[in-house]
Design a protein around this nucleic acid. Structure first.
Length: 525
RNA sequence: CGGGGCAUGGCGCAGUCCGGUAGCGCGCUUCGUUCGGGACGAAGAGGUCGCGAGUUCAAAUCUCGCUGCCCCGACCA
């Protein structure tokens, strides 16, 4: 079996602290049939999963639709989640020797003819700038000034390979210039027609790493190292169990020699590609004629990788952990980890607020991101629902009775469990509690995946399974025609290759021939 | 590109069949009472009914044209 550089090592093994398995039973529970005004509640997941997703994102104020079709506004709360994810990745990029840089948004059209392979994948969804001026129009608005037509059209980047490699050509002449380990945090535009907030929008934010190396081995190692980082951050920071595995020829990036991805299972059983890493071989170096002198004083093409994750990860968090009350955020990426809701009457107001204020300061001291919700215009009950919708991991309730007793009520969002803690020791208890929630969310997601992932060897069973949703582990004969046929008949695609040499005894799920690969199949977002 | 549907206050909708000058819920504003699971009362503000033309004494409502959006299919990945 081929060595995937430690990628498969982690397959199915969480390495996370276990917690009582009874918690997992709560994952699929439906919320109690309480009355809620329709305009405030989120559409139940079981009723309409797609609508539930949109409801949660809009009502939790993560994002809103932009004026141009397919664009989205990432609102402060949603952006804060992205910033937390971004920080987790950036820190690891830096720790592995990468540096950040920024390349231009606008790319000369001529750059795109240089390497047809990778352009092919994006050509049909590129926005192009053709003019540089507006002028007053008769109707009182403005119109494009035809006089300002550009000599060369400019393409708004759908990805930055072309500009970056054009620059690398200038920067690289010797093995002494290598490796180059550059990452860029940027926005890109792909003119999508069918869009969904965070998952697929015409413009989105991402990170693209582009590295150049002197040897194939070093580049390939780099691609796998970044894949490992993707997996590690997804699991430890976002509590998303992911499968890290190689892609098939049909599913890999057009310009790549090899592509790996991390795949997560959403709450409806569909797969979401949450990050990709590519070993590009010398394809880009050849397309852009980037050569260098190696230690033996020979001229050679540079070896390359690229890798990226995007704001799509925010959607993955929503669809993995959310429930009928709204979001459930893993503490490590939650903008607010604990919210304090004071409850008071006119007489008790000052004492309660004073107590809540002290508590807030104490919790902040303990290193927890805390917010005291002292809004006077809404009731405590409203606040409970509001913060549950927004997925805050812990809520602390402080009322007159609590203050009198020197205690407060702490409620976990992940399992809806209440406990009463003394005010003095409460702040110190929260960090551990938050870690427990982090682990609990991971466990719940992992158990859900285990329940909806299994080996299937019968075609009819496979078709039924795909309708229901889930990950199917199957044999595949390795024929691209088979892969296409499966897709056409079931909408399922091969998400990753688990084992790439004869997986003893397995037959191809479609053709019935002896299987050359063991793969994971699922419908994907 | 083909089929279907919808455009009415910030949001969600009724009213259109059978023309008579616009209403409901939520939200918003003010005041008061409330506050341990989405509070209540009272008083308010807010709409050229997608755009254009026609019929009529009178058009959200009927006729024609246009535009935009949504769903299904096709195409694409």
């Amino acid at each position: 079996m081929q060595n995937f550089g430690g990628v498969l090592r982690n397959f199915g093994a969480s390495g996370r602290p276990l917690i009582s398995s009874r918690y997992s039973l709560f994952y699929l529970r439906s919320s109690p049939p309480k009355f809620r005004p329709m305009s405030r509640a989120v559409t139940p997941r079981s009723k309409d999963y797609a609508r539930w997703y949109t409801d949660v994102i809009q009502k939790a104020e993560l994002a809103d639709y932009g004026p141009v079709r397919g664009t989205m506004v990432i609102r402060p709360y949603g952006y804060a989640i992205w910033e937390a994810i971004k920080a987790a990745y950036d820190q690891r990029f830096q720790a592995t020797g990468h540096v950040n840089a920024y390349f231009p948004l606008l790319i000369p059209r001529s750059y795109f003819s240089r390497e047809a392979d990778h352009v092919e994948g994006f050509a049909k969804e590129c926005a192009v700038v053709t003019h540089s001026r507006l002028r007053a129009a008769a109707d009182g608005g403005v119109e494009v000034d035809p006089e300002s037509k550009l000599e060369e059209d400019l393409v708004i980047r759908p990805t930055s390979e072309t500009v970056i490699w054009a620059m690398y050509k200038q920067w690289i002449t010797s093995y002494r210039d290598l490796p180059i380990l550059i990452n860029q945090w940027a926005n890109i535009v792909r003119w999508e027609l069918r869009t969904r907030l965070f998952l697929r929008t015409s413009e989105f934010l991402w990170q693209e790493g582009h590295t150049a190396h002197a040897t194939a081995e070093e580049a390939r190692e780099e691609a796998l190292r970044m894949l490992d980082i993707y997996k590690e951050v997804a699991e430890t920071e976002m509590a998303l169990p992911v499968l890290a595995s190689p892609k098939t020829e049909a599913e890999k990036f057009a310009g790549a020699v090899e592509t790996w991805s991390i795949e997560a299972m959403m709450g409806d059983g569909r797969a979401l590609q949450a990050g990709t890493s590519h070993f590009l071989g010398q394809n880009f170096a050849k397309a852009f004629d980037v050569t260098f002198r190696n230690e033996a004083n020979e001229e050679d093409y540079v070896w390359a990788t690229s890798w990226g994750v995007s704001t799509r990860l925010v959607g993955a968090v929503v669809m993995t952990h959310g429930d009928d009350k709204g979001l459930r955020l893993p503490p490590r990426i939650a903008p607010i980890q604990t919210v304090i809701v004071p409850i008071y009457t006119d007489e008790s107001k000052s004492t309660v607020l004073e107590s809540a204020g002290k508590l807030s300061a104490g919790i902040e001291q303990a290193g927890v991101r805390v917010k005291l919700d002292d809004r006077e215009t809404v009731t405590p009950g409203f606040k409970f629902n509001d913060w549950e919708l927004k997925g805050v991991p812990l809520r602390v309730e402080v009322g007159p009775r609590d203050v009198a007793a020197g205690q407060a009520v702490v409620v976990r969002r992940d399992i809806d469990q209440k406990q009463t803690l003394p005010l003095e020791t409460l702040p110190a208890a929260l960090p551990d509690l938050l870690e427990e929630i982090q682990a609990s969310l991971y466990r719940q997601a992992e158990e859900f995946r285990e329940q909806n992932m299994r080996q299937i060897e019968d075609w009819q069973e496979f078709k039924d399974f795909m309708v229901k949703g889930g990950f199917a582990v199957c044999g595949w004969d390795g024929d691209p025609a088979t892969e296409t046929a499966i897709k056409e008949e079931t909408k399922a695609t091969i998400r990753g290759i688990l084992q790439d040499e004869d997986p003893g005894g397995l037959t191809c799920i479609y053709s019935g021939k002896p299987a050359r690969f063991k793969v994971v199949l699922a419908r994907a977002y």
